[in-house]
Amino acid sequence: MQTHTFLRRAAAGLAVAAALTLTVAGSAGAAPAPGPSYDFSDCPALPAGADAARWKCEVMTATGSLTLGNRTLPEFAPMTVTHAEGPMPDGSRGQVWGALRSAPTAVPGGLSGSPGGDRSPALGLSVQPEYGGRSDFYTVGDDMGLFTVRYRALGPLLPRGCVIGAGETPVEIRLKRVGPSERVSKNPPVIKFAAADDTFAVPAAEGCGPLGRVLNDRLGLPAQTGNAITLAALYTYRTYDQLPPR
């Protein structure tokens, strides 16, 4: 990806994150503006013997831009990722996956791929991210770990099983922090940051029936290069001893 393109997308994403912080600011007294609400109901159960006071449930809400093959989503639907991390009883680092939640995002051009093609209800196309089965969120410097994602392709002419990154070939995203993080709030703890990756490969869509070849041609898949994601994110956490009992 060209540097000026990346910076433009990152700046746009940060503008979205700045708007989302109004929700956090509202918690200090003023009525909150529309934005993410930090719901800890997806916090996973702790491993046996884990110390609740030393384990954190972390919730990240992000939006940004996504390029899969030759199609770019200038702003995808907000995505919320929940996981837990802390020391295992033997002292090693532990992590437990919680959930990934997001609404579908329309693909410009729809299945036809032509300008305005997404205006036809029958040719509409959206993608919705789902957890791909593997993650590691321990940060080292600007490297923010990895998580794998599948993108479910949705449209009136596509079967429900149409997925980009199905089976053993999910999309593997390795995020790097872009610029400094900013603490928005101490209570609750909220941190704003930007991150990106333009090094991942995207496999062809599978399980798409007779239109599978059309879909892959329209998206330019499989694509080993040219894919990219930029995130503008807000992150918060609670230790498990602060969470309500279940």
Rank of each mutant, 00 (worst) to 15 (best):
C208W: 13
L234G: 03
P189I: 02
L234D: 02
P189F: 10
T230M: 14
D197R: 03
G212T: 07
A223L: 07
V190H: 00
E206N: 09
T199W: 06
A223R: 10
T199D: 13
P189A: 05
N216V: 02
V202D: 05
T225C: 04
L219K: 09
V190W: 00
I191W: 02
T239M: 11
P210D: 12
A228D: 03
G209F: 01
G207K: 07
V214N: 09
Y235P: 00
A194K: 02
P188I: 05
D217A: 14
R218D: 06
D241F: 15
P189M: 01
R218I: 11
A201L: 07
I229M: 09
L211V: 04
I191T: 14
C208D: 06
E206C: 03
N216P: 12
N187G: 02
G209P: 13
G220P: 03
A205E: 04
A223G: 11
N187S: 09
F200M: 04
D241V: 14
D241P: 10
V202A: 01
P203C: 07
L221D: 03
P189C: 02
G226D: 06
V202S: 05
A204E: 06
Y240R: 01
D198W: 15
V214K: 13
G207T: 11
N216G: 12
E206P: 04
G220R: 11
N227L: 02
V214R: 14
K192W: 04
D217W: 11
A223Y: 00
